[in-house]
Nucleic acid binder design. Sequence first.
DNA 1: GCCCAGGAGCCCG
DNA 2: CGGGCTCATGGG
Length: 241
Amino acid sequence: MLYILKTFTLLMLKKIYEHLLKEFGHQGWWPVTPSGSCRGDNLEPIYGLRARIEKQKLEIIFGAILTQNTSWKNVEKSIIELNKNNLFDIGKILKIKHDELAILIKSSGYYNQKAKKLKNMCVFLKKYPIKHLEKMELAKARELLLNVNGIGPETADSILLYAFDKPIFVVDAYTKRFLARLGLIKPDAGYEEVQALFMKELPKDTELFKEYHALIVEVAKRACKKNQKCDLCALKRLCRN
DNA sequence: GCCCAGGAGCCCG
DNA sequence: CGGGCTCATGGG
């Protein structure tokens, strides 16, 4: 019985992924600013790049914090402001005054909290440099990140997956709503429970996890909204709603 | 005006 | 442990 359920879930997850990929195409998350942008006018994050240099990884880390309960469009504006001031730099964030930083990220909302969170993160990254965290065992790096004030499970996992290329699945409000409507989880399922659903079934493939999460965000924005638009949804037939 | 957006911390029973 | 509150801007 257990075996049958497990197989069913795996088949569903694969089918969902294939449908979403066909519908929306490759998403190329996480958006980052092209490297060498200091002198050019490329100050804006774009999709489909690989975050190779440290500055780009820092951009993903900051972006993950800034986008907490906030639309990416608002975060983009803040990233451009930070780029203009060359602030994807741990030392400079630690040095800048709180109020000055808060103004630059104002468009992301919660700017006082988030200014503090960026500074907390930089204190942490000074003690544990990105290069060390990347080599660290996944569970250990995750635990350390979760101990930073302002970093919860989703932000930690976004950083691990998109900045450090660690094979961990990111769960957000979209993921829960989407899976609950499909009937694969209970509406009140906890974070780790939902994460385990993906990670026990699917191969631990970093690129697959990156793409899958991005595709869920896309379908949740377009069709699987709070007020669902099932007539627009490619997964209508697989869904309980 | 209202609702919502790629959450997390804190407080409280 | 779980629910309620707070943080805040910008777009629909």
